[in-house]
Design a protein around this nucleic acid. Sequence first.
DNA 1: CTTTAAATATGACTATGGTCATGTATGACT
DNA 2: AGTCATACATGACCATAGTCATATTTAAAG
Lengths: 200, 200
Amino acid sequence: MSLREKKKIETKNRIFEVSGRLVKEKGFENTTVDEITTEAGIAKGTFFNYFPTKEALLLYFVEQKDELIYNLIENETKRSIPTKEKIKNLLVRLAESYEKDKELTKLLIFEYRRYIGYSGLKPGEDKSRSHRLNKILHDLLEVGVEKREVKSHIEVKKAAEILTAVYFHSLIVWLKSESCFSFSMDISGKIDLLFEGIGD
Amino acid sequence: MSLREKKKIETKNRIFEVSGRLVKEKGFENTTVDEITTEAGIAKGTFFNYFPTKEALLLYFVEQKDELIYNLIENETKRSIPTKEKIKNLLVRLAESYEKDKELTKLLIFEYRRYIGYSGLKPGEDKSRSHRLNKILHDLLEVGVEKREVKSHIEVKKAAEILTAVYFHSLIVWLKSESCFSFSMDISGKIDLLFEGIGD
DNA sequence: CTTTAAATATGACTATGGTCATGTATGACT
DNA sequence: AGTCATACATGACCATAGTCATATTTAAAG
């Protein structure tokens, strides 16, 4: 690895490290790019050589954290248990990992939404977090149909979207609520309801 | 009405009118407060006497539009038809009203999310759009339980949240998609699925 | 070791949302 | 009508995200 590459990585890491500390201390909005660059010992412009906008930094944080979580969870989907249990386990594990630090989750999720809601529009590709979960759920449901654990005539695409929708909406509701009900319990109950159906 | 009040209303209307025009022409981000105030013939500071932030203006737009839509729809919920049909009609009507101008909807929804995702956190009260729909659906479901059209043992709260979640998520997916599938058809199918259940 | 071109760093500069001390119009009270 | 407190308007000013022409560093070629 050339000196250049080494320096590049080092600089990016320093930005990441410094900004992580500052954001945890004072929140994202209250942390200025000036502060980050000063603290990191680089010029302001340099920051924008590494992250196109201040919010891209946040995106990077979220991506890093998601990567960790999804890796931990991937194994879960490989066990041979009923489809419904698999989906429930997956979403409950996800929920639990967010429950570990509600404040941090709040920070990351809301800022992320803010950013993605906007710039996420322009490119044809949607790399949003919901897409990733949606794909996993879609695959699980397809297997479920094959195993006759999921209604064979349902549109798997719609069902996956429903599960994704419920998961993310519940996450937002939980994050916004002052009362500290359990997100994982909530999502677990909702999955039961979704598999059973609402109608009588 | 005093002269003062008249002037106040007139000024607010002028801001609303001018900014509406500019935003439609050039988008929200590309419309500056300076432009709006210049065009409206007022000083910059005056703008902030009427709207605490630039984004509050957008909030105002959305509220105005929502008011119209919900008023149109309210009657729908009063007809004596099965609960499922009522809910379906409600959401399909909502969907149809958004389908009328996808671009405008995109603009309003995404900018709104951006704003609310952030400032919507601070106050205990959540006046978000999803709350309003959630309440309506909750009420409809409760009636449905009484009429034995909805499973009596289900938690109505969870069911309402699920419907709300699916509606808004589908809206976002639709807005983001390039292909022009019908949002109202999509939501209609999903409601069938939700009432039937996913499991076999 | 020089020279050179490309990658990278730099910080003065711009654009814009938002603030605030000050000025001005309004209407209640005498 | 004249006086005064209050609500409202004003625009100079500030903070900060993001840009860009220029300077510097690196790596390769001669």
